[in-house]
Structure formats: structure tokens, C-alpha cells
């Protein structure tokens, strides 16, 4: 597993966000092309449900990663460079989690394919 003080933490959270975003948009588009749920079902259908579940899981994953980075930054033995990456990594995972949750909110408000 990637160390919490590794410089890659500066982009890891947002990479996860980016991949999730592609899955969300592509999943919606392909879902609507292959088996569109009826608009009368509103937001209670397999597609919204699936997208919502993926989003929730991604958010939780990012929150977990943020917490892990935050813990690592607080360890006294870590060097300043490592603490810099861990602290920033925590913030970036946190922001990514927020972005994931916020962007996914419409899943509970709109029918998918109209």
C-alpha cells in the first residue's frame, strides 16, 4: 500500500475522484443507451441506485484515506518533507471526498435519462 507520506498522495485522491467521475458519467450514458429506466420511476431505479452506491463507496474510501494521511502527519518521528506530503494528502483526499459526495447528490433528485 502507498505510504501516507509518499509524494504521490498529492494526486492520489483526485485521481480516484477523476476515475469515479468517468465511471459516473460513462455509466449513466451507457446505462441510458442500453437499458433506460422509465422516467416514471423517478430517481428510484437500478441506474440511480447503482451510481449512488458507487459514489458512496468512493466517498468512504476517500474519507478513510484522508484520515490515514492525517494520522501519518501527526506521528512525531516523520520528517518535515513527509509530513508536508501527508498533511496535503489528507486535505486533498478530504476535498476529493467532498467533491464526490457533492457531485453525486443529484442522483437522489433526478430521473436518469431525460
Amino acid at each position: 500500500m502507498l505510504q501516507a507520506t509518499h509524494p504521490f498522495q498529492l494526486v492520489a485522491g483526485l485521481l480516484v475522484w477523476a476515475i469515479w467521475f468517468v465511471v459516473l458519467y460513462a455509466g449513466l450514458s451507457v446505462g441510458c443507451a442500453v437499458a433506460p429506466p422509465a422516467a416514471e420511476q423517478g430517481d428510484l431505479n437500478w441506474l440511480n441506485g447503482g451510481l449512488g452506491a458507487i459514489s458512496l463507496a468512493t466517498t468512504l474510501l476517500l474519507v478513510l484515506a484522508a484520515w490515514r494521511c492525517w494520522q501519518a502527519a501527526a506521528v512525531p518521528s516523520v520528517d518535515r518533507q513527509g509530513a508536508f506530503f501527508a498533511r496535503l494528502g489528507a486535505a486533498i483526499h478530504g476535498v476529493s471526498a467532498l467533491a464526490t459526495a457533492a457531485i453525486a447528490i443529484p442522483v437522489v433528485a433526478y430521473p436518469p435519462c431525460v
Binding site: 422516467a39 416514471e40 447528490i105 443529484p106 433528485a109 433526478y110 431525460v114
Partner: peptide, 16 residues
């Protein structure tokens, strides 16, 4: 969003 989402919803041509 609290204001905008309902407004947007009202503008949709639903098949209903």
C-alpha cells in the same frame, strides 16, 4: 442547488 434543482425539474418536458 436547493433553489436551482426544483426550478430545473419544473422546466423538464416529462412524458407524464
Amino acid at each position: 442547488l436547493a433553489f436551482g434543482i426544483p426550478v430545473g425539474h419544473g422546466m423538464l418536458p416529462l412524458s407524464a
